[in-house]
């Protein structure tokens, strides 16, 4: 461990120690759900090494044209959890992990008959910088921006850089709270909502 790392860890620990006795709770855990899976399913459809291809195929060979095909990729939504530490009331570092189950059916192109169903998933990990514009006891308005990685659940295929931008989010509650936010990026694009706990 080099000197710079030791200084960084010491600074973080000092910030944690200093946080006790302050007038706001610095640690937050959240669990959330987003129904907005378009980015993930598109990503999976276009880049997954195991996804075969869709119904319509234009190619040079008959073996390709009449090869087995798949239905569109479906997902019930994105399930995730986040953990954050607030340095100030207006600034926190947050890490989010999102889990997106996906499934699709496979078909025999010659018989036009289903041959099976495949389930898989995608996973994203994104550290974010979070900025709180309004901090009240019962209500907080915030936004965030983050950069991380996304990949497939088998963890054998390569991961890709992922971005996330949340222009607005709102928390309602004290230690236990509910929240909803609008975001754009690889973690989710659309609405996200969930519950959290501050301590």
């Amino acid at each position: 461990m080099n000197k710079r790392t030791v200084v960084l860890i010491a600074t973080l620990m000092l910030a944690v120690v200093q946080s006790y006795g302050q007038d706001f709770k610095r640690f937050t855990v959240k669990t959330w759900y987003s129904p907005s899976t378009q980015i993930q399913t598109n990503w999976y459809r276009n880049y997954s090494p195991v996804f075969v291809r869709g119904r319509y195929k234009v190619g040079e060979s008959m073996a390709y044209i009449y090869s087995d095909y798949t239905s569109d990729v479906k997902s019930p939504g994105i399930f995730g959890a986040s953990f954050s530490y607030s340095f100030k009331k207006w600034f926190a570092l947050e890490s989010s992990i999102g889990f997106t189950p996906v499934s699709y059916s496979t078909f025999d192109a010659l018989k036009e008959a289903p041959t099976g169903k495949v389930t898989d998933c995608m996973i994203c990990f994104i550290p974010e910088a979070r900025f709180t514009a309004l901090y009240r006891e019962w209500v907080r308005l915030y936004g965030s921006v983050g950069i991380g990685i996304c990949g497939y659940c088998d963890l054998k295929s390569s991961v890709s850089v992922a971005l996330q931008f949340v222009p607005i989010g709102v928390e309602v509650g004290k230690s236990f709270f509910g929240f909803a936010e609008l975001g754009f990026g690889h973690l989710y694009s659309g609405i996200q909502f969930g519950i959290g706990y501050k301590f």
Partner: peptide, 10 residues
């Protein structure tokens, strides 16, 4: 079994 576009291109 396949669409006109697929077969036509081939």
């Amino acid at each position: 079994k396949r669409t006109a576009y697929e077969i036509g291109s081939f």
